[in-house]
Design a protein around this nucleic acid. Sequence first.
RNA 1: CGGGGCGUAGCUCAGUUUGGCUAGAGCGUUUGAUUUGGGAUCAAAAGGCCGCAGGUUCAAGUCCUGUUGCUCCGACCA
Length: 575
Amino acid sequence: MKATQLYAPTLREFPAEAELLSHKLMLRAGFIRKSASGMYTYLPLAWRTMKKIMQIIREEMDSAGGQELMMPITQPAEIWKESGRWAVYGDEMMRLKDRHGREFALGPTHEEMITTLIRDEVKSYKQLPLMLYQMQNKYRDEIRPRFGLMRSREFVMKDLYSFDKDIDGMNISYQKMYDAYDKIFSRCGLIFRPVEADNGAIGGGHSHEFTVLAPSGESSIAYCEKCNFAASDEKAELKVIKAEVEDLLPLKKVETPDCHTIELVKNFLNVPIEKTIKAVAFQDDDGRLILAFVRGDHEVNEIKVLNAVEGANHLHMAEESAISAVGGCAGFMSPIGLKDGAVVLVDSTVMEMYNAVAGANEVDKHFINVTPRRDFKSDKIIVTDLRMVQEGDPCPHCGEKLKMTRGIEVGQVFTLGNKYSKALNATFLDENGKEQYFEMGCYGIGVGRTMAAAIEQNNDKDGIIWYPAIAPFEVVVVPVNAKENSQLEYAEKIYSELKNSGVDVLLDDRFERAGVKFKDCDLIGFPIRITVSPKTLESNSVEIKIRKTGEIENIQRGEIVEVIKDKISALKKLR
RNA sequence: CGGGGCGUAGCUCAGUUUGGCUAGAGCGUUUGAUUUGGGAUCAAAAGGCCGCAGGUUCAAGUCCUGUUGCUCCGACCA
């Protein structure tokens, strides 16, 4: 490809509409243009990268046993009504009507579509397992699209669906996809973690989110550098932290005027924050009072609270009256001496504390020397993991200190069980001639988001730094002055040689000044630049510059192809 | 949906408070010349429904009303 024929409209300034770095860079480097909120055109550079990512995905899906197909974007309302999601999906689904008034949705996902297809065709366990996938546009009418391709309303997604005859088979399919995802994101040059995720309402199965580590990510995750543990902050299970054993002192009530926050109590009584117990009071939608106790320096994790209380739905902050009804006192609460009527949850770590400070359930009074194992009535409390993970907490797998980071979710693997096969009555006959529901899994990758995440993770002040496997071009050949025939011809020959030996190369044959071309190269982020100038012509060599490291070296004319190929493979090992 | 900001040339933005003649700058674009290893210089030029609709006024980019789009924060979210 020659730059004079490439449509890559770079901008000299950052457009005002973008906030996130990857978004700004994609606009400025001529990768994308917006057509409406959350809708983007992928210009040739972006599309080249997208195609490379898709090709990697395709290869790994195929070698894991997947088969590619293509389903309609426009889906009839009936199948969504059948599964019950026509109503559930709500405003997030783009809907439309045809000329006859029939209702359709623009597919936000394709479980209904694929399940009804299989339902009508696959009737025997002998046809299983089956893994089918597609890559195409998905539509979600996000309340608030933002961050360019990170959260858009129309986006390219790979979605694979697995169909198995039983749970064991489903788990094997899941593992295959998990492994394939690992390979895909590695091949894309990303630093990522498979993060343990919750299955939410579906329950029972497994789920991992593949998260690219980047400070600008929307999800917060805890991970371990020693073992492979990683989990989103809300889902991270935590080990009990044991305090040093102390002699038990007698429980005592003390005055703590106006000390209604942990900070005030700690300062007033002059105790370390790790020796205080904090209470958070919730009520669920049925009005049930739920009290959660954690160590003063910890935060309550509402998801864990929800999971700990049988039948609880949404939580909100408790009313003053509900608290006083059980003899509690906001700001001065503890499980000691409470009346029945509240669900009392105590974080496991709290139970390991000695001689701590906790509320006395009276205004301006706290207990000191509280030792929960002695002072809390074990039959009235539920002890469990309640707290939000923090940097430095011990890893639940290996005990190493956990680190916190932010991440971008680029893919997820998910077992569905028979949720959809049941809802849509999709069955087959097993070995015994008995009718069974398919055990399903679904596995998605956001292609555009993967591209954005790669940029988010690899850039500097001059622009993007592409990992070679997903760069729009691996190499750019720049004659500093393309108007000089000798330079242009020399560059063209190198370009052809590289191209013929399988290197993905661009020739910057524009009649631009060298500075302009160099700036564009850096901005677009080609991994390797080859410069042809009068100087290099004279010594029958070229200069190569590695975008990532900035290293520059001269190589002889005859060695170019070989050296470039070596450099590319070396760069692919650098992540 | 609640709250804030914005909409003027392809891009970045000034001008709006306090209405006034032909609406501006920088960058980009076109043409010519001189340049040619890190976003050149000079000269000339093209480019505007001042988001849209209505109103006030002798006069509206500027004031009023409505509307629409974008954007940020929040709420929401398999």
